[in-house]
């Protein structure tokens, strides 16, 4: 317990996380996401095409199940596209003096904040695809429950490394 106390704290005077302060992710990451999107969609529709071809060979028409699958694939494609196009500008990080926040999602928007002094360790992960685009995933782990507690995918590698270094310095000071 410290002797110093500061009781009269006004909530309005607290530093607040401002939505406008979020910095977007590099556009390279959007290209990567688009590539993944088109590959997955290509595969889905190719599979559908095969299914329809067999169906046509067999009964010379399409039964309702095929139309259902077709509709579901299109709906999925449209929703996902909306998420990518509308959602990408919303993806972003804010690094403040004491914490890091990550916002993402169009249909379900999520803002995760982790204070630096609660971080146990950090990790920079990079798969072959993200290496090609020179981006990486920054993961911050806190204590207790397993799993990364804050994942920021699609960060610029240089920026992630700098951030991590800052984190290290902060911790060695305290």
């Amino acid at each position: 317990m410290s002797l110093f106390s500061n009781t009269s704290l006004r909530i309005d005077a607290l530093p607040s996380l401002v939505e406008e302060e979020f910095e977007g992710l590099p556009l390279r990451y959007r290209t990567l996401r688009m590539a993944v999107y088109s590959i997955v969609m290509l595969l889905v529709f190719a599979a559908l095409g095969v299914l329809m071809w067999f169906e046509w060979q067999e009964v010379n028409s399409f039964r309702w199940g095929v139309w259902l699958a077709f509709g579901a694939a299109i709906a999925l494609g449209v929703m996902w596209a909306l998420e990518e196009v509308k959602g990408f500008p919303l993806r972003g990080v804010v690094v403040r003096e004491h914490d890091l926040s990550y916002r993402s999602g169009f249909f379900k928007r999520e803002t995760v904040t982790v204070p630096f002094n609660r971080v146990q360790h950090s990790e920079i992960a990079q798969g072959p695809l993200s290496r090609a685009f020179n981006v990486c995933t920054l993961k911050l782990y806190t204590a207790g429950h397993s799993g990364a507690n804050l994942r920021v995918p699609g960060m610029d590698v240089e920026r992630a490394k700098r951030l991590r270094q800052q984190l290290d310095e902060r911790v060695s000071q305290s």
Binding site: K108, R109, V112, T113, G144
Partner: peptide
């Protein structure tokens, strides 16, 4: 140690 806000 982590605060999450979600809005659909």
């Amino acid at each position: 140690q982590r605060v999450v806000l979600t809005e659909s």
